[in-house]
Design a protein around this nucleic acid. Sequence first.
DNA 1: TTGTATGCGTTATCAG
DNA 2: CTGATAACGCATACAA
Lengths: 338, 338
Amino acid sequence: MPRDTETAPTIYEVARRAGVSIATVSRALRDTGPVAPATRAKVLAAVEELRFTPSRLGVSLAEGRNAANGIVFPDLSGPYYAEVVLGYEEVTSELGRSVIILSTRGQSGVRGLVRDLARRVDGLVLFGQTVDDAMVDELTATGLPVVLLARAPVPGADLVASENIAAAGALTEHLLGHGHRRLTMLGASAGGDIGERWQGVRQTLLNNFVAVTPPVPCDFTVDGGLIAAREILRRADRPEAIICADDQVALGTLLAAEELGLRVPGDLAVTGWDDIMAARHARPALTTVRQPMRELGARAARALDELITGVRATPRHQTLATELIVRTTCGEHPLEEQ
Amino acid sequence: MPRDTETAPTIYEVARRAGVSIATVSRALRDTGPVAPATRAKVLAAVEELRFTPSRLGVSLAEGRNAANGIVFPDLSGPYYAEVVLGYEEVTSELGRSVIILSTRGQSGVRGLVRDLARRVDGLVLFGQTVDDAMVDELTATGLPVVLLARAPVPGADLVASENIAAAGALTEHLLGHGHRRLTMLGASAGGDIGERWQGVRQTLLNNFVAVTPPVPCDFTVDGGLIAAREILRRADRPEAIICADDQVALGTLLAAEELGLRVPGDLAVTGWDDIMAARHARPALTTVRQPMRELGARAARALDELITGVRATPRHQTLATELIVRTTCGEHPLEEQ
DNA sequence: TTGTATGCGTTATCAG
DNA sequence: CTGATAACGCATACAA
């Protein structure tokens, strides 16, 4: 006896079993037209017995849409990206669409991977520096709705980002207020978020007639921060404050200071960016700038949906507010001890 | 003049433009049969001019597969889940398949969502307590390859999990070695990972003739740990050591101890589980058990691929080793100061 | 209220 | 080496 071929039942089998046509089955299942109560009952019974579920492929092919959105990000590691993806998934899922993720951790064949992804979704979120402008153009030229997330803008695509320049300015002012004068930024990047943060820092230093030294590059990881900070802090003219490009770099810097016997904030002030979980639990707790990470993902999801459904046709830029979280790595706060 | 209908070119248009049949186009593109060099050149030229990319829907329909795998997890928040998903995405992507994620944060319609997901993938990873056994049975009964991740086993499905019982025993022994006798576990759950951890703790206490008190339940978050620990630590007979179900709970416990002026590890020992980033950076640094989170995801991905490709047909269980990470919240280590 | 027939975009088989 | 053509599974005008 031949084994059950394990093939999922099709709408045809349901129709035959219920003694109706496939059109009626479809109507009964989707409430998309009149169906006599008795007929509907027969159909539902057949569906039940056969454990029928419509083939996604068939549905998509007929509907002309994938009912899925994509998101491509540089690397899921690190709490920052994960949180954003979470916010994105939550909203997209609510809107009745699946989410397909693609992580391009410095791979080579990114273009191909993104092209593939583009063909299985109705819209795409491009997060950070994952694909270059030319590729973005190629995608938008297709007519595919695209929203950029925390990335340099490209004409024809939506953009969701969080505010960097003003926040970096506020952060710098705060450090200056503590009396620090030799400030160094750790972590450098020409464009994007990091570039904007530097811009804010730099302008504020200039405005206050404080010496500006170029930001020092490093990997945006704990180890990257540790290694670079070790180097910087060993110098005779080590800075009084290190403004780190993100929290992970700041955590590494804290480790380096500890290694070298430097007290924070006594001997050295340190600040981060993002407010990841570890920032709160580090001791001293990290002064940082909180980004609304989930909200970033959620906004991107909603913006994309607007583009897909056609509620809106013209690209829009959104900037989300950030918040300075003053903890203890930036200096003593005698009055308002928290 | 009517707007360009923005419709992606099909294989038919390529064929017409190249002056050949669609079969030839397909063969030329996929190297799936003989094509004269001259013909191939014509086809490729047409493809280039039209910027043709095969429709994923069409390909999948014809191939009879989705070239996508799914993963459903309880909540992307928290570093633990995110890391696992990362490992999963990395391997799955390497294997040439897309990954579709679904987060079931205590939603109601999970069954429907999972059913939907099941129809767009070739295989599914079920992570943690996201779907009940009945649903797992339903899925496997379909013939869909399923691998369970960090979850109670179900006949007919693969299982990838990390070792809990022995590690919990080792952790407990370590605490006993520090002289602690009044131990309490914070965070309770009947089955799954947490249940196994309690099992290991309990057995070790019994073996050492140390009093056993039931684990106290709490939310598996920082706040959950904070609130529950506050309660426990205010009691007259507060424990000497709190074994937390995971790192987030432990971080909350650390916060509670700080609030109450308790020194760790002087007045209280605390341990976590997972070794998330914040565990290393907390001060005192958290003694914990490291789970190979990325590896968990990677293994699940590979196991699923075996099932899908048919390399292996019978279910298999894999248990990954964990590692006790001794830092400073468990007690003084006079000799080997790290 | 129901059924028929067509289209959706490929792949692959089988003749030429 | 190339071309017709049959699936694949569904939704939906249109007819009845």
